[in-house]
Design a protein around this nucleic acid. Structure first.
Lengths: 198, 198
DNA sequence: AGCATAAATAATAA
DNA sequence: TTATTATTTATGCT
């Protein structure tokens, strides 16, 4: 599945080369990486968190993914718009440095995924720190499904929650909390109504 | 201007009716209310503050937001999902009760607005003309340091932010916002990319 | 005049 | 209730 990445991504395309690094390659890499990340149902945040664990502070956080993406954009820009590079303070060199790390990590992620066990949950996203969990943002598709469920049943069973989590690729706890918040939202309406305010 | 509300909001749309109350009407009401609120240049927070004066205890921006959202959700529910109302002790009837209060308030607000005098400032109980903060411009040196930090960590801790603020001689809040905006900028780049721009 | 982006507001996850 | 993300507004700069 990760053949895409291992291929040399030959791009005769252009002389879009900076510091001896072909920006087209970076672009291709980022594209492939994104496809595979989505294929695993992972968010950039999750990847970033996971990397911060396995790779240390130098590669910590989702900035890496985003930075890479920015480079992809920049790589496509014509030379006259090269100033965007400067604006974002992103160097092609740092992108090059990122690649092997992401490759290695994605390879392991896919292996774990293929094996089917623990659904990546322990591989991605557990920070040892006690910091507040990063706010996850649900995809519109996920929200659609969640809302549909909520309309049928505001109190899904544990099994249902687990099923949804698995189906959507989010942590179980995240789904559970979503239902809590959703119920709370409805309750707020009740409170306001009873106060005659609304 | 408030004709929109006073109209019976005839909606032939569906049989989305509970207890003789058309849920579509509630939904339409929430929509109309928002439009008119914006038309008066009022924020959710301001409405909440004003209502807390005339109607009772204070309501936060979040409360207003979630309450209206819940209404819209409730209005979208089909009759077969009526159990949600029962479960949460929300009756369409009480939803119906909401409308007049908001209508009354909005009507007075708009009359005051139309009369032009005091420009609502005493009607909504808030500080007159809180000026927008002057846009700060960062020195290139400051930006360099901030970007360097951002590359390492897009989500600096509170302590880190304070440290940066002190070190650079900017307000803490300014630094915090800078990171928010920076994260956003990167996300936008990613989105553009995924739309095939890149 | 238009752009880049700081600030403000809205929505909602934790 | 708090804190973060998402969206909008508007300002400083070219």
């Amino acid at each position: 599945m990760y053949l895409l990445l291992d291929q040399p991504t030959i791009s005769q395309s252009s002389g879009n080369v900076v510091d001896g690094i072909n920006l087209e390659d970076i672009k291709e890499f980022a594209k492939a990486f994104k496809l595979r990340r989505l294929g695993l149902g992972l968010t950039q945040t999750q990847v970033g968190q996971a990397l911060s664990v396995t790779e240390g502070p130098a590669y910590s956080q989702s900035a890496i993914c985003s930075a890479l993406a920015s480079q992809m954009l920049a790589a496509q820009l014509s030379s006259q718009q090269q100033n965007i590079f400067e604006k974002l303070d992103i160097t092609p060199k740092s992108a090059q440095k990122i690649k092997p790390v992401l490759e290695r990590w994605m390879k392991e992620a896919e292996e774990r995924y293929a094996s089917g066990q623990n659904h990546l949950t322990d591989f991605i996203g557990m920070e040892p720190s006690k910091k507040r969990k990063r706010r996850t943002s649900f995809t519109p598709q996920a929200l659609e499904l969640l809302n549909a469920h909520f309309e049928r049943n505001t109190h899904p069973s544990g099994t249902e929650i687990t099923g949804l989590a698995h189906q959507l690729g989010y942590e179980r706890e995240v789904i559970r909390i979503w239902f809590c918040n959703k119920r709370q939202a409805l309750k707020n309406t009740v409170r306001m109504m009873s106060k005659g305010m609304v």
